[in-house]
Deep mutational scan, measured.
Amino acid sequence: RKWEEIAERLREEFNINPEEAREAVEKAGGNEEEARRIVKKRL
Rank of each mutant, 00 (worst) to 15 (best):
A28N: 02
L43D: 07
W3C: 05
G30Q: 02
E23R: 11
R9S: 08
E19G: 08
V25T: 06
K41P: 04
E8P: 01
A24W: 02
N17W: 07
K41C: 07
N17E: 15
R22H: 10
E20I: 12
A24V: 11
K27Y: 06
K2H: 13
I6E: 03
A24G: 02
A24I: 14
K40Q: 13
R1A: 15
N17G: 15
N17I: 07
E5A: 04
A7Q: 08
R36G: 04
A21I: 06
R9Q: 08
G29Y: 11
L43M: 12
A21Y: 02
I38D: 06
G30W: 04
G30K: 02
N15S: 09
K40R: 12
E26V: 13
L43F: 09
E19Q: 13
I6H: 02
R1M: 14
E33L: 10
A35H: 00
N17C: 07
A24K: 01
W3T: 06
W3A: 08
V25P: 00
I16R: 01
K2T: 11
A7N: 02
I38R: 06
N31Q: 08
K41V: 12
E13F: 04
A21M: 02
N31K: 07
R37V: 09
E19M: 10
K2G: 15
N31E: 08
R11P: 01
E12R: 11
V25M: 06
E33Q: 12
E4D: 14
R42M: 15
A21P: 00
E5D: 12
I16F: 02
A21F: 02
R37K: 13
I16M: 07
K2P: 12
E13H: 05
E34D: 09
E12G: 08
V39R: 01
E26D: 10
F14Y: 09
E12I: 11
R11Q: 13
E20F: 14
E20P: 03
P18W: 14
K2N: 15
I16H: 01
K41R: 13
R22E: 09
E34V: 11
K41I: 13
E26Y: 07
E26S: 11
E26W: 05
I38C: 03
V39Q: 02
G30D: 02
K41G: 11
G29N: 15
K41H: 13
E26G: 07
K27D: 10
E8C: 06
A21C: 04
F14I: 02
A24P: 00
L10Y: 00
F14S: 03
A21N: 00
K40Y: 04
L43V: 09
R9Y: 03
W3R: 09
F14N: 03
F14E: 03
W3L: 10
R11W: 12
A28M: 03
R22A: 11
F14H: 05
V25H: 00
G29D: 12
E13K: 03
V39K: 00
R22N: 09
N17S: 15
E34P: 01
K27Q: 13
I38W: 02
R11G: 11
K41F: 03
A35V: 02
G29H: 14
A7F: 06
P18D: 15
E32V: 10
E5T: 05
E4Q: 13
N15E: 11
E4S: 05
A7M: 13
K27I: 12
L43P: 06
G30A: 03
E34C: 03
A21G: 03
E32W: 14
K40H: 12
N31M: 08
N17P: 15
I6G: 00
E8Y: 04
E26A: 13
R9F: 04
V25K: 00
K40S: 11
R37P: 01
N15R: 06
R11T: 12
A24E: 02
E33W: 09
A21D: 00
G29E: 14
N17M: 11
E26T: 12
A21R: 00
E20W: 14
E12S: 09
R36K: 09
E33P: 07
R22I: 13
R9I: 08
G30T: 01
K2R: 14
L10P: 00
E32R: 05
N15Y: 08
R1F: 11
E5L: 04
E20G: 05
R11C: 04
E26Q: 14
R11M: 13
E13L: 05
E5Y: 03
G30Y: 05
E13T: 03
R11K: 12
E8D: 12
R22Q: 12
R9E: 05
V39I: 15
E23A: 12
R42W: 10
I6Q: 04
A28L: 01
L10A: 00
E23Q: 13
E12T: 10
R22W: 15
N31R: 07
R36A: 06
R11Y: 08
A35F: 00
A7I: 15
L10T: 01
G30F: 05
R36S: 04
A21V: 04
I6F: 04
A35E: 00
L10F: 02
N31S: 10
K27L: 13
E20S: 08
R9V: 07
R9D: 06
E20R: 04
P18E: 15
R1N: 14
A35R: 00
A28S: 10
P18A: 15
R42H: 15
R36F: 02
E4G: 08
N31V: 11
N17T: 15
R9W: 03
I38G: 05
R36T: 05
E23G: 08
A28Y: 01
G30E: 02
N31G: 04
R42V: 12
R37G: 10
R9P: 01
E26L: 10
L10D: 00
V25Q: 00
R37L: 11
N31F: 07
A35P: 00
L43Q: 10
F14C: 03
A28G: 06
E20M: 15
R42D: 10
G29R: 15
P18G: 14
R9A: 09
V39L: 10
A21H: 00
E12V: 10
N15V: 05
I6W: 02
R37M: 10
W3S: 05
A7Y: 06
W3K: 08
A28P: 00
